[in-house]
Structure formats: C-alpha cells, structure tokens
Design a protein around this nucleic acid. Sequence first.
DNA 1: ATTTAACATTGCAATATTACGATAAAGAAA
DNA 2: TTTCTTTATCGTAATATTGCAATGTTAAAT
Lengths: 110, 110
Amino acid sequence: MGATKTDHFTGKQNQIATLAKALGHPARVAIIEYLLKVNACICGDIVNELPLAQPTVSQHLKELKNAGLIKGNIEGNAICYCIDEKMIDKLLNYFSGISSKLNKQKNNCC
Amino acid sequence: MGATKTDHFTGKQNQIATLAKALGHPARVAIIEYLLKVNACICGDIVNELPLAQPTVSQHLKELKNAGLIKGNIEGNAICYCIDEKMIDKLLNYFSGISSKLNKQKNNCC
DNA sequence: ATTTAACATTGCAATATTACGATAAAGAAA
DNA sequence: TTTCTTTATCGTAATATTGCAATGTTAAAT
C-alpha cells in the first residue's frame, strides 16, 4: 500500500486534492508567497530566499508546476516562474462554495 | 531525510501547509464534501460512503481533525463529525488575498 | 452479564515524499 | 572554445503516508 486510490473518487475531488497537496508543504507555500511578493516574476533567486538546497527547490518548483499552480518561461539561461491565476481561482471558488453552503445551513450541531 | 523542515518557515506558512496537506487526499476531500452534503452532521456512515476500509477512514478522519478542519462530538456510542467553519474561512481568506493581489498587479509576464 | 454496534488503535507491508550531493544540460559571457 | 551561470536530473538515504487485518474500547441493547 502507500498508493492513493485515486480511481475511486471523482475527477474534481482528485483535482482539488492535487492542488491542495501541492500546497501541503511550507516551502511550496513560501514559493507562492515569494512569487506574489516580487510582482514581476523574477526567477532563480528563489533558491536564495529559501533555506533549502538548489535541487530541493527545483523539485518543489516542479511539483507546483505539475499541479498547474505556477508557469515557467525560459528566458535566456534563466527561467521565469509565475503564479497561474486560474488554479488559485479554482481553489478560491471551491472554498467559497463550501463556506457559503455552511453559512446557509447554519450547522449548529457540534 | 524525508522530514519536512518546518522550523525554517513562518508559523502562517506552516499552518496553511498543514491545512492544505490535510486536503491533499481525495478521500479527505470526499469526507468534507459528504459532511457538507448531509447538513446535519450525520456520523459513522461515512465508512459506507467511501471505498475504503473502516480503519482507513478512521485515520483520514483523525488527520482532518488534527488539522482542525472537522470537529467530532461523542453521541452515545456513535460520533458526530462536522466541518469547522473557521478553518475553511482561513483557507478562503488566504486564497482570496492571493487572488486579489494577482488582479491588482496584472502579472503579464508568463 | 452477553452481545452488538460504532470507532479507535496497533502492527505491518507497500509506496511516496523530502532532502541533498554529484552530475548533466544549455545558453551567456569571456 | 572555454568558462560561468542557471536550472534540471539522477541516485540514494531518511522519513512519512496509505491501506488494511486484527484487535481494543466504549456504550447501548438484549
């Protein structure tokens, strides 16, 4: 075992889980926040910002990219990473939906 | 290695990562959605809803509870689980903040 | 007191994740 | 061309996660 049983769940459930999982590590949260802070999507100094070795950062970037949360453009010999708004909005919509449903049903049981 | 270096990141980054990680599995997303659907926080038939054995579901519930996303009340010999609005709102606010910042800075680089 | 029902816990096997040193790849600069 | 800079990939060790069978635990029901 150790392998997630993805095929028993809906596509949407798996997609939300994939996005959430990608943000399930503080380094990747920090990367997103750094990309947000530097506005222009300045590149490889992400490594200098994080307390992690370069291969580790590269790996985290890859996972964020696979999940679709960031995009990367090659620019000379450097790479320009930036946040993909669409996926952030997907998460925002998801939690927004949950929150409004919760408010409607006034769940006062627990 | 294999252990996350949590102490090098901020408390907030770690908290968002913890919440996201808890939702980083389709079964746990499905549990949240089921709890949302049944409004009244009906209890142990979560096991019947999911394609997983009872101990596995119990473990997923425990992780959601540890992250603070759900609460559990003992009710006779059954247990009443329900969503904790506060944590959902924390995630909602977080992504809302990112989204609005992205809209302001019109990041047109990638 | 026994049995049943609902969950939790333990123990274990299979797999995934995290982290990094070493090395490769590819373009820029000299 | 050689060297430097930037990023990716490989290999590997340490640890975490996932999943379930077996077993506890607790309280209701008989």
